[in-house]
Amino acid sequence: MSLGPGFGWHRYPALIAGAAVTLVLVTLAAVSLAWTPYPVTELVIARRLQGPSAAHWLGTDQFGRDVLSMLMAGSRNSIAVGFVAVGIGLTLGVALGMLAAARRGLIDEAVMRLGDFTFAFPAVLSAIMITAIAGPGAINAIIAIGIFNIPVFARLARGAALQVWSRDFILAARAAGKSTFRITLEHVLPNVAGLLVVQATIQFALAILAEASLAYLGLGTQPPNPSWGKMLNEAQTFMSRAPLLAVFPGLAIAVAVLGINLLGDGLRDLIDPKLRRARA
């Protein structure tokens, strides 16, 4: 089967569902740049901690801000953290992992020990260190989370790449005279891509949660800018009075993570010729 005419999208329910959820999220984030039902910086103490109503579909928070507007605006930060942090980790980590697997020897040792070194510090701790040096803020939080993602991807990419390097088709490519770099691009990367995509979706979810922790510590997104993680953390204080306040950002995170994971699984199946035929 080919990706040409007659490609059966109905065979990829996970891909469709994941792509749909992701599309809705991105759209909401984009719309929030121009319009939200209420301004997110508008504090109206008189209407604080209201339940859902016709005026405020998802209710209001402890400062009387509209929760729906906050979620929409917060999605920008959360999605940005996810994409950029995973992007940093994926790009640099995979490059390092590929290099380590292709060169072996000292370079391999150096890359892996560097990874161990980074792993030795918990993500949040290293993020605190980075933001302590560079100052708090969403951008620095993203960079901190991204740096923590590098060894995760480096390790995974290296392990998977080493397996691919031991296969005979690599030997055949070398016998054909292909360079290490070209073999990495043409054989190794395509064969580890599925694994990386799945890991990327997992890291995406973790990045959103890490941003929440940082925001809670005051090191992530700065007030008055909202983020889902921050909303979730702030809602804890009002758990007994307004439980719904925690439910909505929690639900948003859960739906986003689920959607991205489905997208990842779907993409993995899509790029694997074997799975493609198994479904045909």
Partner: peptide, 21 residues
């Protein structure tokens, strides 16, 4: 590299010697 076209190889396991992708 330029000489490699004159000697080529066939391997034991036809599953492993062809890139599945």
């Amino acid at each position: 590299r330029a000489r490699r076209r004159f000697f080529q190889m066939v391997f034991q396991d036809p599953n492993g010697s062809l890139d599945p992708r």
